[in-house]
């Protein structure tokens, strides 16, 4: 078997395994999604004004995504360390790049579902409307932003999980790095929502930035994940 097809097979095995764990345990559905929704409600309390909420809704969606993401990443690695499975994967010589890609794909699927929920919540709670062109743009924004977030999250999540009892390090390492995603995705989403009179066409340069970010971290993570999680 060639190396590439072996890597692909393990990547999908890892992704399927992570998604099956979520399917069996429903932690995202039962715990993280309600948490994300309540954050959106709390934003509404804090910014007690319909006009402001409509204006800043895109930023709130992505802030809520980032906070929920921290929880999802910690969950993604706590299932690995609960019974020493990550150790077992390492000792079995399973290709770390494939582990990285597989976990990133699973995280991407889960984050995407979460963002869809958050955007839906914003529609209901903050009175957002969108044109068909805006809808397409919002979809592409979510796709590119999520790819970048999932990769960078898996990379730093693995580092924090490799050291017992230091999971608190994750936000410090992760949040400064994802600044480009928060900036880019918020501006692109503003264009899609038409917040503050923004045009749909204004969003596409930001989607370019999100794409660069995603490609960069797919590459960096593939190389750096192995040495970061190893003993």
């Amino acid at each position: 078997m060639t190396n590439t097809s072996l890597r692909r097979r393990i990547t999908f095995a890892v992704a399927r395994k992570d998604l099956r764990i979520e399917w069996n345990s429903r932690v995202l559905v039962n715990q993280v999604a309600p948490f994300a929704a309540i954050v959106m409600v709390l934003f509404a309390f804090a910014l007690d004004n319909d006009g402001i909420l409509q204006r800043v809704a895109p930023g709130l969606v992505w802030l809520a995504t980032l906070f929920s993401m921290l929880v999802v990443i910690q969950r993604s690695f706590s299932v690995e360390s609960a019974d020493g499975a990550l150790d077992a994967l390492r000792v079995a010589g399973v290709d770390p790049t494939a582990i990285f890609l597989g976990k990133s794909i699973a995280l991407m699927v889960q984050l995407f579902a979460l963002e869809a929920l958050l955007v839906g919540t914003a529609f209901v709670l903050y009175n957002i409307t969108m044109s068909p062109a805006g809808l397409v743009e919002a979809f592409v924004t979510m796709l590119t932003a999520t790819a970048g977030l999932a990769c960078v999250g898996t990379l730093y999540g693995g580092l924090a999980a490799g050291v017992r009892g230091r999971e608190t390090l994750l936000p410090l390492l992760l949040l400064p790095v994802v600044a480009p995603v928060l900036i880019g995705a918020t501006r692109a989403m503003e264009a899609a929502f038409g917040s503050g009179g923004a045009q749909v066409s204004e969003g596409w340069p930001w989607i370019g930035l999100l794409t660069v970010f995603a490609v960069l971290f797919i590459a960096l993570g593939s190389v750096a994940f192995g040495p970061l999680v190893d003993e």
Partner: peptide, 29 residues
């Protein structure tokens, strides 16, 4: 040494991207 070296190299790649995106944020806004 291994952990921090990898992280230092990641940082040197990330920083221009953060800088670029913040610049883009300020100039388009």
């Amino acid at each position: 040494a291994r952990r921090s070296s990898v992280l230092a190299l990641l940082a040197i790649v990330e920083i221009p991207l953060v800088h670029f995106s913040v610049n883009m944020w300020r100039s388009l806004h």
